[in-house]
């Protein structure tokens, strides 16, 4: 890194090379997000940074697929560099990069799905995140052009807009598991649940009817998955305190929802309730799988699983608000 750039604002870029290639390309209507498209999106992010009118440095997460390296190489710009960190080829890379960016970056752009954002959340702290959807079944990240994401990140990183006014803090969910195989903690961002299936298998949640219960930190009928199911009962903004817990099954209400990309169906909810921050929602299960953000995460047997919602998630940039605030300040008008 050049010395002259030390004081320039920094935008971290996390591109998950594994996002968007799971089985939902077959079982649902999920779109394809190939590495070529991710590189093009990342190039647009880097181009968008210049909207901030001042030099912004970009640091890109390395990965086992060399996707990050190729993004840096393609940029041919000394203000774009690769984050210096060991690479494991797993989700650990995202967590490690988030932790590094929490101290060196002024804003982070994440290209990935809900799973990627969950990993980012573990270490990103208060650093604002612009979350672009390249994964599947996404609740947290939003589909948008990379240039728009880069533009917003540049404005936030450069301090052109008031960070607290254009960001909101997402909630988190934690599952405390006590089972025959010992104790474990699994965390999620928007949704967690328990499936009546024995194995994680291909990881993606393919069939909402096998849910035993679900806990969401946000709810809107516009979302896909169990936050959409919950949203059919009651809406709950991502930055509102607490969330909703649902017990799946007959005897209660039936909700029409978008459960998986390409699939609309009715889901039976036996009971549901609001869940306050810190209050555990506990379920006993013989054999099942804990899910987090649309993925099967952890197999359990003879287990007691307690889900707890907290309001300590990542600080996400409201992109429209960021552009609006910048426009109000006249930032887009060239001085003559």
């Amino acid at each position: 890194m050049a010395d002259s750039g030390r004081s320039d604002p920094v935008v971290g870029v996390i591109v998950n090379p594994a996002a968007g290639r799971d089985i939902r390309r077959l079982t649902g209507g999920a779109s394809v997000s190939d590495n070529y498209a991710k590189r093009r999106t990342a190039a647009c992010v880097l181009a968008g940074l210049s909207l901030a009118r001042e030099p912004v440095r970009a640091i890109v997460m390395p990965d086992a697929s060399n996707l990050g390296q190729r993004i840096v190489d393609d940029a041919e710009d000394e203000a774009v560099s690769l984050l210096d960190m060991p690479v494991s080829g797993s989700a650990e890379d995202t967590r490690r990069a988030a932790e590094a960016f929490s101290s060196i970056a002024d804003c982070v752009v994440v290209l990935g799905g809900d799973g990627t954002n969950r990993d980012v959340a573990t270490g990103i702290g208060e650093t604002p995140v612009v979350s672009v959807s390249t994964g599947t079944n996404n609740v947290v990240p939003t589909p948008m052009d990379g240039t728009v994401a880069g533009g917003a990140a540049g404005l936030v990183a450069a301090g052109a807009v008031d960070r607290s006014a254009v960001t909101y803090q997402h909630g988190t969910i934690t599952a405390e598991i006590h089972g025959s195989a010992g104790s474990e903690t699994v965390s999620g961002l928007a949704t967690m649940g328990l499936l009546d299936r024995p194995f994680v298998g291909t990881r993606a949640v393919l069939d909402v009817s096998s849910f035993v219960c679900g806990v969401v930190s946000r709810a809107s009928p516009a979302e896909i998955g169990i936050s959409g199911v919950a949203g059919g009962l009651e809406t709950h903004a991502p930055d509102s305190a607490g969330g909703i817990a649902m017990e799946f099954g007959d005897g209660g209400q039936t909700i029409r929802a978008m459960t998986v990309p390409g699939i609309v169906e009715s889901v039976s909810i036996a009971r549901w309730s609001r869940l306050a921050p810190g209050d555990p929602y506990t379920v006993e299960i013989d054999r099942g799988v804990v899910t987090a953000d649309g993925e099967r995460e952890y197999e359990v047997a003879d287990a007691s699983v307690s889900f707890i919602i907290a309001d300590d998630g990542p600080r996400l940039v409201d992109v429209d608000a960021a552009f609006g605030a910048a426009a109000e300040r006249g930032l887009f008008i060239d001085s003559s």
């Binding site: 594994a18 799971d22 089985i23 939902r24 390309r25 024995p198 194995f199 994680v200 291909t202 990881r203």
Partner: peptide, 14 residues
């Protein structure tokens, strides 16, 4: 086309 964890027999099966 999709990628599965080939070290997990349950993933390949599914």
């Amino acid at each position: 086309g999709f990628t599965v964890n080939g070290m997990d027999v349950t993933a390949v099966y599914e």
